[in-house]
Simulated assay, not measured.
Amino acid sequence: MLNTKLPPAQTKKIFIVEDEGDMCLLLNIMLQEKSIELEHVKTIAAAQEYLKKEEPSVIILDNKLPDGLGVDFISYIKQNHPDVKVVMISGYTPEAKDIALENGADLFLEKPFTREQLYSSIKELLN
């Protein structure tokens, strides 16, 4: 059995940028741990406002958002918050994965993914 418990001392805040309510609820359920603080917005503009005030440990970023593509937002995150880890989540297309990684995403998760995949990905980024 894979140990998927996230290290509480290293996990401060996970910021989710996802516009689909069902996916956001699923992410919240998957990440519901006492040691994880979760915040959520639905647009790139709201994410930019949030990042002016906060510095999360990890950003879980959807690609198709109402006001743009997450892959295009990665470079903004990395330029302004170089220590923040970015996990791009999207339906798999080779182009989206390649662009996300080229733009600085630390990881790409194809939808649908399991709780174990999500936990192990975040744990890997925080170690």
Rank of each mutant, 00 (worst) to 15 (best):
K85V: 04
R115W: 03
K34T: 15
V17K: 00
E54Q: 13
N3W: 14
L107G: 03
F15A: 04
M1E: 15
G70A: 00
L26R: 09
T11R: 02
L65S: 07
D98C: 11
D98W: 08
Q117Y: 02
M1R: 14
L26S: 11
H40Y: 08
F73I: 08
E39R: 03
S120Y: 03
E37N: 10
M1W: 13
E110C: 12
N80C: 11
K12E: 04
K52D: 09
V71G: 07
L69I: 05
F73S: 10
P82I: 12
L61I: 07
P94H: 03
N127S: 10
P82Y: 10
L51T: 05
T93V: 07
G104T: 14
E55G: 15
L27G: 06
T4F: 10
D83F: 14
I16C: 07
I36D: 01
E55K: 14
K12V: 08
I44F: 06
P7G: 15
V86Y: 06
D19I: 09
L31T: 08
N28D: 14
L27Q: 05
P112Y: 12
Q117I: 04
S90V: 13
K78Y: 07
N103Q: 14
K64M: 11
D98E: 13
E49P: 04
N28C: 15
E33W: 04
P56N: 06
I77Y: 04
V86I: 11
Y119N: 07
I122T: 07
V87H: 02
A96E: 10
V84K: 02
Y92G: 00
Q79I: 12
K123Y: 03
K111L: 08
L6M: 10
L126D: 02
L38P: 06
K42C: 15
M1F: 14
P8S: 06
V71Y: 08
P7S: 15
L6T: 05
M1K: 15
L125I: 05
E116S: 03
H81K: 09
P112E: 10
S35R: 10
L107E: 11
F15C: 05
H81Q: 03
R115G: 00
D62R: 01
V84W: 02
N28T: 13
D83V: 15
G70T: 00
Y119R: 10
R115T: 01
T4V: 11
D98P: 08
M23K: 09
D83Q: 12
D67A: 00
Y119T: 00
L31I: 06
M23Y: 06
V87L: 03
D72W: 09
I36H: 03
L126W: 01
L118D: 00
I122L: 06
E102D: 12
K78W: 04
V41W: 01
I29Q: 07
Y76D: 05
I77A: 03
F73L: 09
T43Q: 00
S57Y: 13
N103D: 09
E102M: 14
L26A: 13
